[in-house]
Amino acid sequence: MRHYTTDSAEAMSRVVALALLADGALDNREIESLSRHGICDRLHISPATLDRVIHEFCNDLMQCARAPNVGQIELDRDLVDQLLDDIRSPELQQQALGAIVDITNADGCLTGGEAIVISEAMSLWGLELQRVARTQVRPAQQSSPQLQIDQAWLS
Results as ranks from 00 to 15, higher is better:
27 D>K: 08
70 V>H: 14
74 E>H: 02
78 D>G: 11
111 T>I: 00
50 L>K: 00
102 D>K: 00
62 M>T: 14
61 L>T: 02
1 M>F: 08
138 R>E: 06
107 D>N: 13
142 Q>S: 02
100 I>V: 14
122 M>C: 06
145 P>I: 02
138 R>P: 01
82 Q>K: 15
110 L>H: 01
47 P>T: 05
83 L>S: 02
102 D>Y: 01
36 R>D: 10
139 P>H: 03
46 S>H: 07
91 E>T: 12
132 V>R: 04
23 D>A: 10
13 S>C: 08
15 V>W: 01
51 D>H: 08
88 R>P: 03
31 I>P: 07
71 G>Q: 07
91 E>D: 09
35 S>D: 13
77 R>A: 15
81 D>I: 15
154 L>P: 00
87 I>M: 11
22 A>S: 10
93 Q>G: 15
97 L>A: 14
89 S>L: 12
63 Q>R: 12
61 L>S: 14
51 D>F: 15
71 G>C: 09
11 A>P: 06
26 L>V: 03
148 Q>F: 08
103 I>P: 00
7 D>V: 07
114 E>M: 02
96 A>S: 11
49 T>N: 10
154 L>N: 02
130 Q>H: 11
55 H>N: 12
138 R>H: 08
38 G>W: 05
109 C>E: 09
120 E>L: 06
50 L>S: 07
97 L>S: 09
48 A>F: 11
120 E>G: 03
27 D>N: 07
54 I>S: 09
102 D>W: 13
137 V>L: 15
43 L>P: 08
96 A>P: 05
30 E>D: 07
20 L>A: 09
102 D>V: 06
115 A>D: 10
50 L>T: 05
151 Q>W: 07
144 S>D: 12
90 P>C: 05
41 D>P: 02
7 D>E: 05
114 E>Y: 00
37 H>C: 09
22 A>T: 04
74 E>S: 04
72 Q>T: 09
28 N>Y: 12
24 G>Q: 02
144 S>Y: 11
35 S>E: 15
19 A>I: 00
52 R>P: 09
96 A>Q: 05
127 L>R: 10
5 T>S: 08
63 Q>M: 11
113 G>Y: 01
1 M>Q: 09
46 S>A: 10
24 G>N: 00
154 L>H: 02
5 T>V: 13
57 F>E: 01
1 M>W: 04
23 D>T: 00
25 A>E: 14
19 A>E: 00
128 E>C: 08
97 L>P: 06
63 Q>L: 10
71 G>S: 08
6 T>D: 15
66 R>P: 12
141 Q>G: 06
110 L>S: 05
108 G>H: 01
2 R>H: 14
82 Q>V: 11
10 E>R: 15
134 R>F: 02
143 S>C: 04
8 S>C: 08
78 D>N: 14
64 C>N: 11
51 D>Q: 15
52 R>C: 05
109 C>F: 05
7 D>F: 12
22 A>H: 00
67 A>Y: 01
139 P>Y: 10
